[in-house]
């Protein structure tokens, strides 16, 4: 009776032991040497495997970094902290940056942008641009069908009133939404205090006015208002050069279309960006008159 238990136990146990030896030998004999630094660097990375660095996951990034010791390689979501840790491990002066944040360069929400027609196709931005780009008149603005929302693994972007809005605190800066947007209106921007033009239309002002109330009409007021030469102007569209911009807020307050968006301005800059309402009324210049003051609020 006991044999019926003991024999199988002995056979299985013996077999287990034998295979363990085989595995041990195989592990020793066929071991591939990997720089222990790679594992250390990988442990210091966020391990989100998001691909924002351009490599296939954190391990790939770590092995490339250890192999090349390239100081310019950096992990966008990890930011400065990760860069410092990785730098210490490799003995490099890795100059990290804070992770960038996605920015939607369109504010043409319902009631602000003009709509035309009725779209009955697939609820997907890419599919919509293959036909006639859904129902917004503007051929450049946010389609608003949420391809970016589905691309984001971190719920950091959502559609509000027909336009995509980034939630900066959730955004890790992997750029998945940038790749998903068929209109190319999502860009990566430095995190923190900043000013940007939330429009991508290069069309002349008259055309832009037909699209939307918050489109850049190319009036150049912001260019004149900027004392740091940070407002670049190209074919009817202003663009902020983040390297030169000091976030003084001067351009924000001067924009008649309220298309210059500001994040985190305080003190004097904030006052410049939000001039008291009485200044708006006497502004009887033709460009300002056409923009209803309440639109951008």
């Amino acid at each position: 009776m006991l044999e019926a238990v003991l024999i199988p136990a002995a056979v299985m146990g013996g077999l287990g032991g034998l295979l363990a030896v085989v595995l041990l030998v195989a592990a020793r004999k066929f071991a591939v040497y990997e720089d222990p630094l790679i594992a250390a660097v990988e442990a210091a990375l966020p391990n989100a495997n998001c691909g924002a660095c351009g490599f296939a996951g954190c391990h790939d990034f770590a092995s490339k970094l250890v192999a090349t010791r390239d100081e310019k390689m950096f992990c966008p979501p990890g930011g400065k902290d990760t860069a410092a840790k990785v730098g210490a491990l490799l003995g490099l002066q890795v100059e990290g940056r804070d992770p960038p944040v996605a920015v939607v360069l369109c504010r043409g929400s319902r009631g602000v942008a003009n709509y035309a027609g009725e779209y009955a196709g697939l609820a997907d931005c890419r599919a919509a641009t293959l036909v006639d780009g859904a129902t917004k008149v503007c051929p450049y603005g946010c389609v608003g069908l949420g391809s970016c929302v589905r691309a984001c693994k971190y719920d950091a972007i959502e559609i509000r009133d027909g336009v995509a809005v980034v939630l900066p605190e959730k955004c890790i800066g992997d750029g998945a939404c940038v790749a998903a947007c068929p209109r190319g209106i999502i860009r990566m921007a430095p995190r923190g205090v900043r000013v940007y033009v939330a429009c991508v239309s290069h069309d002349p002002g008259a055309a832009v006015r037909k699209y939307c109330k918050v489109g850049c009409i190319g009036c150049k007021r912001c260019v004149k208002a900027c004392t740091f030469d940070a407002m670049q102007f190209d074919r009817n569209l202003a663009r902020v050069d983040h390297d030169k911009c000091t976030a003084c807020g001067a351009c924000v307050g001067t924009c008649p279309q309220k298309v210059i968006e500001e994040v985190g301005l305080t003190g004097e800059a904030h006052a410049k960006a939000h001039p008291p309402p009485k200044e708006k009324k006497p502004a009887a210049e033709p460009t300002a008159a056409a923009a209803p003051p309440a639109a951008g609020a």
Partner: peptide, 13 residues
Amino acid sequence: RRLVHLLRLGKSE
């Protein structure tokens, strides 16, 4: 089902 639209999207992707 909007099969043609789906296929057109699929083809372009």
